[in-house]
Amino acid sequence: MKRFIKKILIFSFIVSLIYPFFIIGSAKIFGSNQKNLKFIPNRSWTKKTLEEADNYGDVNILFLGSSHAYRGFDIRLFKKFGKSFNLGTTSQTPVQSYFLLKKYLNILKPEYIIIDIYFPLFESDGIESSIDIISNYFSIYNFKLLFLSPNPIVLNTLIYANYYYLSNRNNYKIKEYQNKFDKYISGGFVERKPQFYVSNETFVKRKIKMNPTQKKAFENMINLIKQKNIKYILIHSPITKIEYISYTNTKELNDYIRQKGIFLNFNEIPIPLNDNLHFYDRHHLNQYGVHIFNKYLIEYLVKIFPELNKEKK
């Protein structure tokens, strides 16, 4: 049996050495965007956000979440509470939120954390967000994403991303992401040019099924925040009513999130938002919407954390 185990170990070792060469070779022949390899840099603001976060210094408030976070929490409106940073990234699910929090907790040292909740992201496999981070931001720490959510796409993209960054390290520069509708605001917020949502979509009623991996990552993240004695609040940013009512199990989801901390679901709290006037698509606020939402959020924050008015970093 010793011989058998020894041979398996040697074979596994050789395969783990050979495998990356095949991935790189495959990317050279078929391109870096294929079925199980998705190295797609420069398609989001992630690079800019994470590079800025590295040198941003201590903050009072840290925002986490998907595009709802980086497009929904305008850090300029939170200035009166001190310095804040928006660590939202594209399609960020609890897996990536937990991953980023672990990485940046000691860099940004926040006193308050605001976590954006978007129910559909709890059923996501999180691949899109993982490959967005891997493709745009080189860090050996990215391998942790693979352990949080093991997946062939994440593995292959990690292998190729590391090869790409290492082989281009002397003259490496990813072109700055540009989008004619967006403006990046220092601190992680992305302002959208005024656009309005014209609803012509049909929404099929459906139940959101929580992915156990996301649930576990979410709970780990909350435990980590609690261990560090950081004050936190969970927020579901407004989405269009037409989309929100298409989820059939919001009560169950709200109850679950409420067990984990103070939860404000702005789709259940009456605030004057209109699907056509204050959104630019079915689940993203436009800048008019952001102003209204942030105004109400700030009022709630002051009520929940009265000391916020006094603390400034």
Partner: peptide, 11 residues
């Protein structure tokens, strides 16, 4: 093994 790594479904 390479075929599995490159062609399997992610989920």
């Amino acid at each position: 093994i390479i075929c599995i790594g490159l062609l399997m479904q992610a989920s």
